[in-house]
Computed example of a mutant assay.
Amino acid sequence: MERVALISDVHGNLTALEAVLADIEGRGISRIWNLGDYVGKGPRGREVVDLCRERCEVNILGNWDDFLPDPAREFGGDSLAWWLAQLGPGQGDWLRALPFSHDEWVSGRRLRVFHASEETVHRRVRYVRSQAEFEALFSNTPATGDGPLPDLIGYGDTHDPHYEVQLEARTVFNTGAVGNSMGDPTAMYCILEGEWGSQETAPWSVAFARVPYDVEAELAHARAVNMPDYEGYEVELRHGIYRGNLREWKAGERPTDYHERPL
């Protein structure tokens, strides 16, 4: 039995990433897969990309990794230009060239991981979703390519961890987020254990790990470098409230629609 750590959605939060990597190392896990969204929202995309290139054996494309370095994008002076400027030479090209998905056998299951959905990194599948959306996750598309159909899906993007199994043993798990987890803001990742590379039925498991980190240090750095949209970053890191609900939060309301928020 071997364990692989699956991380996702670091979003430039180097403090959280370092804490998660230390926890992974402390558990004796050497294999790490990253399911995308290295950059944006947080202040240190460059450092996050460097560290993930060094430590992760599998790196997957996320939606921010695709659109932020897009040379055709017109920024118009908004905050996206600030996050793009944080990237080092060649990092934007590296991000946009990342594979869409990765398949591997584990304990007789055909595992497929991607960032958001089977179709595109720019369409997310929420915890509250339709039956058709669930079933589509297991299909081959132009983005995933052909090959054996998966029966075990791992993805990130929503910052909203969950696990679900349906008929024919089709199983989906969402890793949650390292950099700005929703609901519970504590950094989160998954550990998948099984017989890797084996098509023979064997025990396997998926576990969710929460890792506290120094939120105040991360926010202090964001303030020191005058990162844009700081209030949104702060409410996500302190309270696990999506920045799109900042107005309701400041008004004293308790936003509860994140699971169902449309794209």
Rank of each mutant, 00 (worst) to 15 (best):
E18I: 04
L21S: 12
A22I: 02
I24P: 03
G26E: 01
R31A: 15
I32Q: 08
N34A: 15
D37W: 04
Y38H: 15
G40R: 06
E47D: 11
V49L: 03
D50R: 13
C52V: 15
R55E: 08
V58C: 06
D66F: 00
F75L: 08
L80M: 13
L80P: 02
L84Q: 09
Q86M: 01
W94A: 13
L95I: 07
S101M: 11
W105C: 10
R110D: 06
H115E: 12
T120E: 13
V125A: 05
V125Q: 00
Y127A: 14
V128I: 14
R129N: 13
A136F: 10
L137E: 02
F138H: 03
F138R: 05
S139V: 07
L149Y: 04
D151S: 08
I153T: 08
G154I: 04
H159C: 04
H162W: 11
Y163D: 12
V165N: 05
V172G: 01
N174V: 12
T175I: 11
G176A: 08
A177G: 04
M182G: 01
G183D: 01
Y189R: 06
I191R: 07
W204T: 09
A207W: 09
A209R: 11
R210F: 06
P212Y: 06
D214A: 13
E216K: 01
E218S: 09
E218V: 01
L219V: 01
A222K: 00
R223V: 08
N226P: 04
M227C: 08
E236F: 00
N245S: 13
N245W: 12
N245L: 03
E248P: 04
W249S: 06
R254P: 03
P255M: 02
T256Y: 06
H259G: 05
E260L: 14
